[in-house]
């Protein structure tokens, strides 16, 4: 990480053309791949899992009513499962992004604003 906005003040202004030029840099293609590698499967995954849950709630009520223990049934466990998967994906994404995405994004941001020599 080469800059900290508080210490260095806002980065120098750049033109739209300078920003657009970064689009053809192979590092940008790599940055995009890094992001999409997580968000595309994660999005399809949680949407499918949620849809499955709603479909089960509408069309598989006997299954949803199966008692697992005490008074706790499948419907309640699957509902809590939606909570857990949401927490898990949010946590996993932050971890993935801060390790794999942020350093590359910051490098390219600085390359646009300060040039390559910093």
């Amino acid at each position: 990480m080469t800059t900290s906005p508080d210490a260095d003040g806002p980065p120098p202004e750049v033109s739209e053309a300078d920003i657009a030029a970064m689009h053809d840099d192979p590092r940008f293609a790599e940055l995009k791949r890094t992001l999409f590698r997580f968000i595309v499967p994660a999005t399809f995954g949680f949407l499918a899992w949620y849809l499955l849950y709603v479909l089960l709630s509408a069309y598989a009520r006997d299954f949803m009513g199966t008692v697992v223990f005490g008074n706790v049934n499948v419907a309640l466990l699957l509902g809590l499962g939606q909570f857990l998967s949401t927490f898990g994906i949010a946590w996993g994404y932050s971890r993935y992004a801060s390790r794999n995405f942020d350093p590359k994004a910051i490098e390219l941001h600085d390359a646009v604003h300060y040039g390559e020599d910093r």
Binding site: D24, F28, L31, L108, H109, V112
Partner: peptide
């Protein structure tokens, strides 16, 4: 396509974004 290129670079790297 030029503007889309700018949009994507901005969106992913934060270049040219509004500062505090």
């Amino acid at each position: 396509s030029e503007k889309f290129a700018t949009l994507q670079v901005r969106a992913l790297t934060g270049a040219g974004s509004e500062r505090a």
